[in-house]
Simulated scan of single mutants.
Amino acid sequence: MKLILLTHEREFDRITNTGALVQRRFPNLCQRVLWQRKEPNQAMLELIEFGKVGLVYPSPESTGLKVTSDTALSHELPEYMILLDATWQEAAKMYRQSPYLQNLPTYHLEQAPQTLYVRRRNQKQGGLCTLECAAVLYELAGDAENATQLLGDLKAHNLKQFDTCG
Rank of each mutant, 00 (worst) to 15 (best):
Y100W: 13
D143P: 10
M94G: 08
T106A: 07
V56D: 02
Q125S: 10
M81L: 15
N146I: 04
A135N: 11
R121P: 08
L73S: 12
K38T: 09
I15Q: 13
L21G: 13
N17Y: 03
A86Y: 08
E61T: 11
C165I: 06
E39N: 15
E61F: 06
S62L: 12
A112M: 02
H157L: 10
V53E: 05
P58D: 00
R14A: 13
L84T: 03
E110Q: 14
P27K: 07
N158K: 05
E61R: 12
R119Y: 08
N146M: 13
Y57H: 13
Y80R: 05
L116D: 12
V53C: 03
Y80E: 03
K38M: 09
D143R: 13
A86L: 13
A156N: 12
A92W: 00
T87K: 04
K2A: 12
F50D: 13
F26D: 11
R119D: 14
W88F: 00
Y100C: 01
R24C: 11
L154C: 14
D13R: 13
E132W: 04
A141V: 05
Q23C: 08
L55W: 05
K93A: 03
N103T: 09
Q23L: 03
T87P: 15
P27F: 09
G152V: 03
A92I: 01
K124V: 00
N103P: 03
A91H: 01
H8Q: 01
R96E: 04
G19S: 06
A135W: 08
R32Y: 02
Q125H: 08
T16G: 07
P78Q: 07
L131V: 11
L116F: 09
L151P: 08
Q42Y: 03
H75M: 02
M44E: 12
G166A: 13
R37V: 01
G64S: 01
P40M: 13
N146C: 02
T148K: 14
Y107D: 03
I48S: 12
T68F: 01
G142M: 09
M81H: 07
K155R: 15
C30R: 06
D163G: 05
Y100A: 13
I82P: 13
W88T: 00
Q42R: 14
F12P: 01
T115E: 08
G166K: 06
R37L: 02
H8I: 00
E132F: 06
M94T: 04
L150P: 10
D163A: 14
T18F: 01
E49C: 07
T87V: 10
Y107K: 09
L159N: 10
P99L: 08
N146T: 08
D85L: 12
L47T: 03
L150G: 14
L159T: 12
T71R: 09
D13T: 00
L6M: 09
S98I: 07
A135V: 07
A141M: 09
T115D: 10
Y138A: 15
R120K: 15
L128Q: 00
F162Q: 15
D70T: 07
R37D: 05
M94R: 03
L109P: 09
L151I: 11
S62N: 09
M1Y: 02
Q149C: 10
T18E: 04
K155Q: 15
R96W: 01
P60I: 04
L137N: 02
L73R: 10
N103K: 10
M44D: 05
V33G: 08
R121N: 10
V53T: 06
V56Y: 01
M1N: 03
V118F: 11
I15H: 09
R24F: 06
Q23A: 15
M44P: 01
G54T: 02
N41S: 03
E49F: 05
N158L: 14
